[in-house]
Design a protein around this nucleic acid. Structure first.
Lengths: 217, 217
DNA sequence: TCTAACATACTGACTGTTCAGTATGTCAAG
DNA sequence: CTTGACATACTGAACAGTCAGTATGTTAGA
């Protein structure tokens, strides 16, 4: 305590940084609603007053974190996909790999996006709108790649693109969550290999469409 | 109000039923923590005291709902898979179809399982233990089928079974969530078709393993 | 001195849980 | 068939705790 005080501007930066880091950690671990402002302040080595000095509300804190997340994650994804070769299958493989890399490099930021969209999914308000906008950007990227693969004839064209995109996205989010929860019992690199294989195979044009007889019921 | 009072036993049944249905609905819509006991009671047309007359605690209510869910979901899955033909690919297809059917027939019960396991995933306590036990049963079924497919030579053997099972499970849970949130823009049957195709293709032995060059970095 | 950057103390609202009291159902004795 | 003793199914209020947000005090930098 009573750390040496820096210049005001430097102090401002480090305090804001400390608060956001603490909030990110706690939001991811306990959820937004289950995290009190007091605990955020305490974890950042500050008081509740400091939180409200820098942020208008608890939601504003989450808002700031989501902004950061969008910059880190979506922008990276846009650039990576755009910079890849022209083949749709390469772009999809890159989508999986980039998600995985981000998950290893900056798991909390990825988790915050996924968990928040679950926690807020049936609440109205600015946070939900923000999350929807972020996911919309991700879906736009994905759907473009899938469409590309269809015109290239490497992805099956008998299913709606939004449906395929939803499965890819949900599969990746869900798998990442599962990996995060069971890091000990799940091997990361193997998981990425398997996920990439499943994603590509699931999108690819059939090489043996046969057992299409009605099953179950 | 002042409804005609039934016999004690009948009254007990209808009240308990009303409370559990209300709780299921609200837990799924708003989450466990965000649902107050008052709102449950109100939705059931009773008072808060009535909740505590029939249940020891709010958690006990969730406990009861999870018990019901396990009976409906896991038992059904066990029987369906066991009753299928000997081919692992058929059993996997049946796994997807059964999940989908359950999702259509009784979405709330499926959702409660998925959402609760997310909400409680890093909390200790009886609820989390219960959820882990339920999921463990599901994973056991899945892993058995995958192992079977490997011995039958139809599923790829170069990946750990738990990894493959995690992807299948996460993909299904995630896809179901996405479908539930976007019923309007996602066609259910097509989603099931696509998911079944992706699951089977992702597990199947490679027919063209080639582009295994290291990508990204 | 003035003000940015906090800390402290507090408010009002909401929460899960408990409980005394009441209205109604049940059932055996007379 | 009535009645009294009891069990069941609640209600309404209160309690202790927690929380987001606010108002105000304090101190160090400019």
């Amino acid at each position: 305590m009573a750390a040496v005080r820096k210049t005001n501007q430097a102090q401002r930066e480090t305090s804001v940084e400390a608060l956001m880091q603490a909030a990110l950690r706690l939001f991811v671990d306990n959820g937004f609603d289950q995290t009190s402002v007091d605990r955020i302040a305490e974890a950042a080595g500050l008081s509740k007053g400091a939180v409200y000095f820098y942020f208008d509300s608890k939601e504003a804190l989450l808002h700031g974190l989501l902004d950061q997340g969008e910059n880190v994650i979506v922008d990276r994804m846009v650039k990576t996909i755009a910079g890849a070769g022209p083949k749709a299958s390469d772009k999809i493989a890159l989508f999986v790999n980039t998600q995985a890399e981000l998950g290893v490099t900056d798991p909390d930021r990825v988790l915050l996006l996924i968990l928040s969209s679950l926690e807020f999914h049936n609440k109205d308000g600015a946070i939900n709108q923000r999350l929807r906008a972020i996911y919309a950007r991700m879906y736009a990227i994905l759907e473009d790649v899938i469409e590309l693969g269809k015109t290239q004839g490497v992805f099956r064209g008998d299913l709606p693109t939004p449906v395929q995109a939803a499965i890819v996205m949900a599969g990746h989010d869900g798998t990442f969550l599962e990996w995060y929860r069971r890091k000990d019992s799940l091997d990361g690199p193997e998981l990425v290999r398997a996920l990439r294989a499943a994603t590509l195979a699931g999108l690819a044009t059939d090489k043996s469409e046969k057992s299409n007889k009605r099953r179950a019921k």
